[in-house]
Design a binder for these strands. Structure first.
Lengths: 223, 223
DNA sequence: GGTTGTGAACAAATTCACAGCG
DNA sequence: CGCTGTGAATTTGTTCACAACC
């Protein structure tokens, strides 16, 4: 069968990392084979969705049996680009930036923190989790030097757009924005955002519906 | 007309907080009126979407003019349940939990941190940003005492499901999960998640596509 | 004139249901 | 028989385009 021109839907891409984590757990538990039904349970979705999602990667299952955990792990890692490291720069060494830097989980998972930068010269030279904080003006040099793939914005909202511009200018094509601000990037740049206040306010909406007036709508839970 | 069978779509609910923030900025800048076009620009979406989204709240605009910033702010705050405080408990006082506790932005925005709890008795009694850490066994008492609305899980993955169960058991109906784990909750509980590793892996996927992987076909991914 | 509010058209995502294969 | 892979049906979300209204 010829290779297809696989365009993987965005919604599917967003779920692959979840499947990946489940598969890692299964592999660790020495489970060799998994059905879509069981994987769906672990991932908190339904089985048809799992099968559709996995089918975008290729036909890696065996009818009547399920998916080989190790093989699927390999294919999925490859698809997600996790067979190589993607060095990360964290911009903004405040509370959040430091917490992110101290959180070990990055480096282990293929996202080594290659640099920390801040605009505040008082913070430059400080050491956080083994990384010396450098000034943001050095960004282009740092990016070129270590081949930064991903920039994490952990600054106050007011600085976020300018930081994004500087990341883009430094040739960094993937940005994860923690600042509570909408930022614009060119279409060639990937942008994801994590917004605390937004999440809490969404919860607030449903909380109110629930505790508020009469008839409450059905509600979604599981991931 | 008899008021409404307004079922606000999930996708819209997720955008309302973004509009809200834009409106707050406009109000601060003493701008009295805003068109859907301009608001769309600020929110990073398109104008038709803004109008559709706002129309679920009611007909609060004026044709030929736009939306009154203050009035829309009020209506939206009400809809989002932000006219009251929703006390929050943070479970897990590690790096992330502490960073969240120290991050001032919560309390100001109507989500006061009413309690910090941890399973580690060595941490109990510690003070973080003015809050004394209490033991997680006290959760039911704390929840009842201060009327906790939202639980934030900032524990390691392994503990997340048990913590979720305990939050639910304590009557907390909204959960924000930072742990890198899928958790199940009853359908009456609202669950949102923030997953660092997932976000990075999504970026990795597109990054890899962009850096033109050698394999498969002469195909260019659009953005 | 300008801008909203909304049906209708379109697109994306989800779910169903079952043929096809091990 | 059991489970995958996938067309078809359905649901959800987005965008268009324009009548209605200020």
């Amino acid at each position: 069968m010829a290779e297809r021109a696989r365009r993987i839907p965005e919604a599917t891409v967003a779920r692959l990392p979840v499947y990946l984590r489940c598969l890692l757990e299964l592999a660790e538990a020495k489970i060799a084979t998994i059905s879509s039904e069981r994987l769906a349970e672990l991932a908190g979705v339904n089985a048809a969705k799992v099968r559709k999602d996995l089918s975008y990667l290729g036909s890696y299952g065996t009818r009547g049996v399920g998916y080989d955990v190790e093989y699927l792990l390999f294919q999925m890692s490859r698809e997600l680009g996790l067979t190589q490291d993607w060095p990360v720069v964290i911009v903004g060494v405040g509370n959040l930036g430091q917490a992110l830097a101290n959180y070990g989980g990055f480096t282990d998972r293929g996202f080594p923190i290659a640099a920390l930068v801040d605009a505040d010269r008082a913070k430059v030279g400080q050491k956080v989790h083994g990384n010396v904080v450098r000034h943001i003006d050095e960004l282009p040099a740092i990016a070129a030097e270590v081949g930064i793939a991903i920039g994490i914005i952990a600054t106050p909202a007011g600085a976020a757009q300018e930081v994004a511009d500087r990341l883009v200018a430094a040739g960094i094509a993937s940005i994860l924005n923690f600042a509570p601000a909408v930022i614009a990037v060119p279409p060639s740049t990937s942008l994801r955002k994590v917004d605390l206040a937004v999440e809490l306010q969404i919860l607030s909406f449903y909380q109110q519906r629930r505790s508020g007036s009469i008839a409450v709508g059905p509600e979604r839970a599981a991931n």
